[in-house]
Amino acid sequence: MSESEYHFELKWVEQIRQGDSGALKKLYKDNYPSIAHFVLNNSGTDTEAKDVYQESIIVFYEKIQNPAFQLNCLVKTFLYSVARRLWFKRLSEKNRYVGKITDYEDFVDFSEAETENIHEGEERFRQMEQALEQIGEPCQTILKDFYIHKHSMQEIAEKMGYTGTDNAKTQKYKCLQRLKKLFFKDYSFKA
């Protein structure tokens, strides 16, 4: 990668890091065809191509949130390399791995630790989703409203019909405790 190219990439990455949605959209649109092509030609469907692609964008996005992250290849190459790792994993999970993968782009071969890291985000997300699902009502609504939709305790108390914010808070902490149990039940199992 030439110096000017590198410079340009860094600028772009910086824009995305700062939450520039236009830059992210451009990234999304520019890189979709090559990754879709890869997945479709390695026994994947459109939906799978889209999933794998979006997951690699998320991995990239999460990576660049860490200031220590160093980009040592083109963004395009990075995304492609992540996507192909993710796709290997899905193929093997589905027992569809046929032993031959056709590549269409340059790619970086990640180390085992890095590969682990790629899958980690998605796994943690699934765990959290599962835990939130298993927790049941009213906990699910309360926790989602507070931690995800960022509603205030007062709003939540009104919505759920608690007599005061304190009651809602107490309920919230009970829920949090349950969530912790459910979350770590799988977490420790996998660790």
Binding site: Y32, Q54, I58, F125, M128, E129, K180
Partner: peptide
């Protein structure tokens, strides 16, 4: 420590949800 992991998990869960929704809208637009 456990709660720290849990809160981090909730936060990245929320970030991911938002990001996915955004990506999905790009996809639709595309």
């Amino acid at each position: 420590d456990d709660y720290r992991v849990l809160f981090d998990g909730l936060e990245s869960y929320q970030r991911r949800k938002n990001l996915s929704a955004q990506l999905e809208s790009f996809h639709q637009e595309m």
